[in-house]
Nucleic acid binder design. Structure first.
Length: 419
DNA sequence: TCTGGGGTCCTAGGACCC
DNA sequence: TCTGGGGTCCTAGGACCC
């Protein structure tokens, strides 16, 4: 059996842990630049604030309903996630961390020795008492069905107490008939549209389609999903692998048309890519750089371009990455456009330890030492060391007007209690 | 004024190899 | 008239996920 454990309204719940007065109140968390709503408490969902809602369009609704609005605080959410996952790992040796707030647990052979409902409830209690985060658990013979079970556990929390088990053909059929086709894991907007056109409205009707048909219309991905949903375990637990790509992409606060400004932004993104690579101890060999205008401004000329550039050798040195990224930028930049967003994706990642030496080009060995020192200083001094290509006068101007403290990772931002 | 960011996988087509 | 068969690698685009 597989369990899917999902943190309820994760980002909103993290904010609540450190401010319990938010309990039972509507809470939303915004994306970078305070742009869109990316997490909502149940109370906020009840106000019909949709996922992805642009914040500026909902300002009035926030005010009228006393919605508590937060900028996203990834330092906090990442650390809380790590704590939750650590607790879950004590319940089974086989765990796949699927996302920041979700994990699959393989409970092989547990059924014979434990009551799975009680086991699930024990997990809920442990995570709640040790982190303050509420979770829901779905248990079933396959991953796709565990997802379905999780949805039921959450939707009928009053009945299920947060744990729901699907086992046996009858329960599977019942759960699948209840599940709307668009709510199935792996069925997104496009597939939903196509299936509805065929009058396939729920998951049960989907699993009754012929294999060949599903394979032809929805590729092997769809076919695997169909099998897994029908109870044949097809998707297995994956060891949480190292990342294959690492990206830093941001919309700008304004539109830029000046090459010098883009150069500064892209340099800063490349420096950040370097930090991320060093954190997971990887090198990269290929950088993809892209640039685009504001797609929401129909009145302006549109342009988007992207290019891949090889680094001279596998590297995680910010210096080399900046140089490579700027080569790419120069190739795709065109004058006369108002740019709104740029990004860099590092690809072809290799472990930093297994460096393939090149015959003619090689990293200056001083880079490695230098980067170590820079990372250390930036950690201690909260990001004070910058590179020449970055704007030294810039006080990081991403919009974060309602940021909570990094309660669990910074000494100077600990929660304060008055006695 | 204002509209996120970071991932994965699959397929098709082109360029290349022997 | 007629023009092989089997590969790999890369890229772009499109779908999906949270």
């Amino acid at each position: 059996m597989y369990a899917l454990v999902d943190c309820n309204n994760f980002y909103a719940s993290c904010e609540r842990v450190f401010d319990p007065s938010l309990e039972n109140k509507p809470v939303v968390v915004l994306s970078n630049n305070d742009g869109c709503v990316i997490a909502r408490s149940n109370e906020a969902k009840a106000l019909d604030i949709p996922m992805g809602a642009p914040a500026f369009q909902y300002e009035k609704i926030f005010e009228k309903n006393n919605v508590y609005v937060f900028s996203s605080n990834y330092a906090l959410y990442g650390d809380m996630s790590r704590r939750v996952m650590n607790i879950l790992s004590t319940f089974t040796p086989d765990i796949e961390i699927y996302s920041i707030d979700e994990a699959f647990l393989l409970l092989a052979g547990f059924k014979e020795h434990f009551d799975l409902t009680t086991y699930g409830q024990d997990m809920i209690k442990a995570v709640r008492s040790r982190t303050g985060i509420p979770i829901s658990i779905g248990i079933a013979p396959t991953k796709a069905l565990a997802k379905v079970a999780n949805k039921i556990a959450k939707k009928f929390a009053n009945h299920t107490g947060g744990v729901h088990i699907i086992d046996g053909p009858e329960k599977i059929r019942k759960a699948l008939s209840w599940t709307k086709i668009g709510d199935v894991w792996g069925i997104g907007r496009q597939y939903e549209k196509r299936l509805l056109a065929l009058n396939i409205k729920n998951a049960q009707q989907f699993v009754e389609l012929h294999d060949e048909y599903v394979r032809k219309e929805f590729s092997v991905v769809g076919l695997r999903l169909k099998r897994d949903l029908s109870g044949l375990s097809t998707l297995s637990l994956e060891a949480t692998p190292l990342k294959k790509n690492i990206a830093v992409t941001r919309a700008f606060e304004n539109m830029y048309s000046d090459y010098a400004e883009l150069k500064e932004r892209v340099s800063t993104y490349a420096v950040k890519i370097g930090e991320k690579l060093r954190r997971q101890d990887s090198n990269c060999s290929l950088l993809q750089v892209f640039l685009l205008t504001n797609p929401f401004r129909n009145d302006l000329k549109q342009y988007r371009a992207s290019i891949s550039v090889y680094t001279p050798h596998p590297t995680n040195s910010s210096i080399t990455l900046v140089k490579t990224a700027l080569t790419g930028l120069e190739m795709i930049y065109k004058e006369g456009f108002q740019y709104k967003k740029a990004g860099i994706i590092a690809m072809k990642l290799t472990p930093a330890k297994q460096k393939q030496f090149k015959l003619f080009t090689e990293e200056n060995p001083k880079h490695e030492q230098l980067m170590k020192v820079v990372d250390l200083l930036n950690f201690r001094e909260n990001g004070k060391v910058k590179f020449g290509g970055q704007d030294l006068g810039r006080t990081w101007k991403i919009k974060q007007e309602r940021l909570s403290n990094r309660f669990s990772t910074r000494m100077d931002e600990l929660i304060r209690i008055k006695i």
